[in-house]
């Protein structure tokens, strides 16, 4: 039995099965809380806890899937290239917005964490929270944060912005689709982009571009600050 559980296919099968369930649930329940990845992670954790199967056994196959984050990150270039004309047309506002956003994100985490005396490793895990998960995981390693906490921070960020954005948009009278799209993409990455697509095509496309630029801006800003 032990040998069977340490087979690479166990971790891969469990992850993909729970992800399939997550996709199904998110299609039925239209809420940002029913995120396929969140559902799948909770199911995996519950499964491992209930069966008492060690994380190390799960990780044998699981690590194979983690490796695929690398080529997936590289492929983000393709999604941005397909919106090249929009990027060219609005490059200056996008670049400025994303750079300001990335800086505010990093500085606000630093300042607030220091105020409440959050342990260093938690602060470092929070720093890359506004960029897309693939890039955030890389940055967590760079900052000395804990990757699993960074994923949680990325998810909490994405979901809270999506829930809060309609309120913020009304409160501050943000009507321009370009402004809406860039703000959503910069603050809440892919989860924000799904919301942006609900608001309109322009918002969705701008948000997608903003993910890429914010990722680059966050890397540059953090290199300059640390």
């Amino acid at each position: 039995m032990n040998e069977l559980l340490h087979a690479p296919m166990f971790g891969i099968a469990l992850t993909l099965c729970t992800y399939a369930i997550g996709l199904f649930v998110s299609r039925k329940v239209h809420s940002p809380l029913a995120n396929p990845m969140v559902v799948a992670s909770i199911l995996c954790i519950a499964f491992l806890k209930l069966t008492g199967i060690p994380l190390a056994a799960y990780a044998v196959g699981g690590d194979f899937l983690v490796m695929l984050i690398f080529p997936a990150t590289t492929c983000i270039a393709v999604s941005v290239y397909s919106r090249m004309d929009l990027l060219k047309r609005h490059f200056i506002p996008i670049a400025i917005g994303c750079t300001v956003g990335a800086t505010v994100s990093i500085l606000s985490v630093r300042v607030l964490s220091r105020l409440v005396g959050l342990p260093e490793i938690l602060t470092n895990s929070l720093l890359p929270k506004s960029v897309t998960t693939a890039i955030a995981l890389e940055l967590a390693g760079l900052f000395g944060g804990e990757p699993s906490l960074t994923v949680v921070a990325v998810m909490v960020t994405g979901i809270s912005v999506v829930l809060g954005a309609p309120f913020l948009i009304r409160l501050f009278g943000i009507t321009d689709p370009i402004v809406q799209g860039v703000a959503l993409g910069t603050s809440s990455h892919v989860i924000g982009t799904t919301k942006a697509l609900e608001l309109g095509q322009t918002q969705g496309a701008m948000s997608g571009i903003a993910i890429f630029i914010t990722g680059c801006a966050t890397v540059i800003v953090s290199l300059l600050l640390f």
Binding site: I92, G97, V104, S108, I178
Partner: peptide
């Protein structure tokens, strides 16, 4: 508790700062 509220507060600040700077630039 701190981890979560800092995350949310910083996310909203980021949203507003980005929106304001894009609006101003435009």
């Amino acid at each position: 508790f701190h981890f979560i509220w800092i995350c949310i507060a910083s996310a909203f600040l980021t949203f507003l700062a980005t929106a304001a700077s894009v609006k101003l630039t435009l």
